[in-house]
Design a protein around this nucleic acid. Structure first.
Lengths: 108, 108
DNA sequence: TTAAAATATTCCTTTACAAGAATATTCGTT
DNA sequence: AACGAATATTCTTGTAAAGGAATATTTTAA
């Protein structure tokens, strides 16, 4: 069982965290490197990483007194799967209101 | 130009709004119908729809004194495109830290 | 033009959460 | 053991936003 969509979306909805995730696309990084590249203070970087970690978007690998963070793929796959549930809609005449209006008339 | 990912994610990060969006997958609905199906009060339903509308996720069609809301597809396509930028990563040996560790050593 | 239904808006209160600053922890090195 | 570097945690404060209640707006019908 994977984290639900809401957890993933909430974690990603914060600008700095979104930046962190986008940065980590390029490869694993330590806290210090992330903080430096995004011009963040270390404590908030750790805190954001903590949120991302709790949401299952990121995991850490200890290396000496450093911690190397990298993305987890499952939540992104889940999100992709969720979006796929919309995909088949667009091809249909979803945006044509004819059918709905007829249904609406029927109720009156 | 489409709304950026952050706007979309922020709008979807709220549980009720996520519910609304998922409900609208099945087809356009009026405010009253949404409120009824999700057991929400009308004012908060309108407010959530307002946020979704401002974020470009939803649009309304006036029909008498009702308003029929439906999904907009562009933001979802954009989000899908954003996720695609992760896709090629998973196939690579992204999760193998070897390379990174070597890089890290080189810096010391 | 008044009334009623559907929806939108405003105001208020409360809560969640991010930033900032300070401190604690952990690990390797000497 | 002690120190310094890297990271985590705690505490406080400020702010954005969600919920509730009341009211305003819009539209149709009588």
């Amino acid at each position: 069982m994977s984290a639900n969509i809401h957890v993933t979306l909430s974690a990603l909805a914060e600008p700095k965290r979104l930046q962190i995730v986008e940065l980590l696309r390029e490869g694993p990084l330590t806290v210090g490197e992330i903080a430096e590249k995004l011009e963040l203070l270390q404590p908030q970087t750790s805190k954001h990483l903590g949120v991302l970690n709790k949401a299952g978007l990121v995991e850490a690998e200890a290396q000496a007194n450093k911690r190397i963070y990298k993305l987890c793929q499952q939540p992104f796959k889940d999100l992709d799967g969720w979006l796929a549930s919309f995909g088949h809609i667009w091809e249909q005449r979803y945006d044509r209101l004819d059918e709905y209006l007829r249904k609406l008339q029927g109720k009156d």
